[in-house]
């Protein structure tokens, strides 16, 4: 092998390094925070309407998926019979962890509350598994486990972040700057841990419970598009018109995956 050949070999080595360095990161740019141009919208309690409903699965109820936590003995000790929260369906077909929100039809400015939404890591699972948070509202992420976690949010419209929480009791605060449904969260240490957040510019959202029920309260009268989002089953939408003090029902049905 000639010295010239070796000299040539050194070129791609550094070219590669330089190219990669020049590429830089692709950390997603956060969308500009919404400027609160308009005064806060106040919904008159005398006319406020509400929607309740149930989310059901159309098809065979899938079996509960067990999680193997043997990769971390502390998790395995803490959570003796862990089950996946990704698709939780009751015997009657009621689906939990479906986010229902007003997708279209709202006007006004709904400032974010100062009270934080808490995302807890306990038993090496996220609680809640699905949640809503307003743009600008604090999100507090807590590690209640005696093991370490990393919290990795992978949004598109907001800033991606990945932070470590090696010590039990650690807290991390974050606020999202742009509306986005849904933002996935994962722990790369424990591959089974994931959660989903809906970042909205209003407070009209709810997550279905184990009985599949949800409730949207305090809506101003109007015509709305409601969307139900499930991480595995996709989305369903419907339109609803609410008069003053209406209490209507809006049920959603998802087809079981074939």
């Amino acid at each position: 092998m000639s010295p010239r050949l070796l000299k040539g070999l050194s070129v791609p080595v550094f070219a590669l390094a330089l190219t990669a360095a020049a590429c830089g990161g692709n950390a997603k740019d956060a969308a500009a925070p919404a400027a609160p141009a308009a005064p806060a919208t106040v919904v008159d309690p005398a006319t406020a309407a509400g929607v309740t409903g149930t989310i059901k699965l159309d098809g065979a109820v899938p079996p509960v998926t067990a999680i193997k936590m043997s990769a971390d003995p502390i998790c395995a000790r803490q959570n003796k019979d862990p089950k996946s929260d990704s698709l939780v369906v009751a015997a009657d077909g009621a689906i939990a962890n479906v986010l229902v929100y007003v997708k279209d039809g709202l006007t006004g400015n709904f400032p974010a509350p100062a009270t934080p939404v808490v995302l807890n890591q306990t038993g090496c699972q996220y609680t809640p598994h699905v949640f809503g948070v307003q743009v600008g509202q604090p999100l507090q992420i807590v590690n209640s486990d005696p093991t370490l976690h990393n919290v990795h949010a992978m949004p598109n419209a907001n800033q991606e972040f990945n932070t470590g929480q090696p010590i039990q009791g650690m807290k991390f605060d974050h606020t999202f700057s742009a509306r986005e449904v849904m933002v996935p969260f994962k722990c790369d240490v424990h591959g089974w841990m994931n959660a989903h957040a809906a970042v909205l510019d209003h407070p009209f959202f709810a997550v279905s419970g184990p009985d599949g029920k949800f409730e949207l309260k305090g809506l101003p009268p109007g015509k709305y598009t409601l969307e139900a989002v499930h991480e595995k089953l996709g989305t369903q939408t419907l339109t609803i018109e609410l008069a003053a003090k209406d209490a209507k029902t809006a049920d959603f049905s998802f087809k079981a995956a074939s």
């Binding site: 990669a20 590429c23 830089g24 990161g25 950390a27």
Partner: peptide, 13 residues
């Protein structure tokens, strides 16, 4: 790692 695994850097690595 710091830039969340962008493909160009990961491929170069």
């Amino acid at each position: 790692v710091l830039f969340f695994l962008p493909p160009p850097i990961s491929i170069a690595h």
